[in-house]
Amino acid sequence: MEKSVSVEYKSYGVRWYILGIYSIFAASEACVFNTWGPLAQSAKTGFGWSDAAVAWIPNIQIISGMVSLPMAYPVLQKFGFRSTVVFWGAGVHALGIILRCVSLDPTILLVTSLICSALNGWTAAMIEGTLTTLSARWFPAGERTTATGISIGVQMAGLIPPSLIFPRIVTDPGMSITEENGSEEIKNNIKSEVSYILYGEAVLSCLLFVIMLLYFPSHPPSPPSASAKADRYNFFQGIKQIFTQPKNIIAGLAFASVTVPLMWIAVVNQNLNPLGMNQVETGYIGTFIITASFLMNIINSGILSIVACH
Rank of each mutant, 00 (worst) to 15 (best):
L207Q: 06
V267T: 11
L262F: 13
I62F: 15
G48H: 00
A226Q: 14
I57L: 04
I21Q: 05
I290L: 14
A40K: 08
I249H: 08
N278I: 06
R100I: 00
I150Q: 00
I169H: 06
N297L: 10
K3I: 11
N234V: 06
G174N: 13
F294G: 06
R100F: 02
S218I: 07
I250P: 10
Q279M: 14
K247W: 11
S64G: 03
E184T: 10
T107L: 08
A52E: 10
F166Y: 14
Y9R: 03
G142R: 13
L119Q: 06
L275V: 03
V54A: 02
I298G: 03
T291I: 06
G13C: 05
I97A: 00
K78N: 15
A266T: 15
V267C: 02
E2R: 05
L198G: 01
E201W: 10
P162E: 06
A256G: 15
V85T: 01
Y17Q: 01
A30W: 13
M296D: 12
C309R: 15
T291Y: 09
T291M: 12
S218P: 02
F87E: 05
A40Q: 05
M71H: 09
N269M: 05
F243Y: 13
A40N: 03
P167E: 03
N34K: 10
S103G: 07
N188K: 08
K44H: 04
T287Y: 03
V7W: 09
L114E: 04
T35N: 08
L104E: 13
F236R: 12
S135G: 08
S50Q: 08
S225I: 02
S83M: 15
I150V: 13
G65I: 03
G283W: 03
E184A: 13
L272G: 05
S222V: 09
G37N: 03
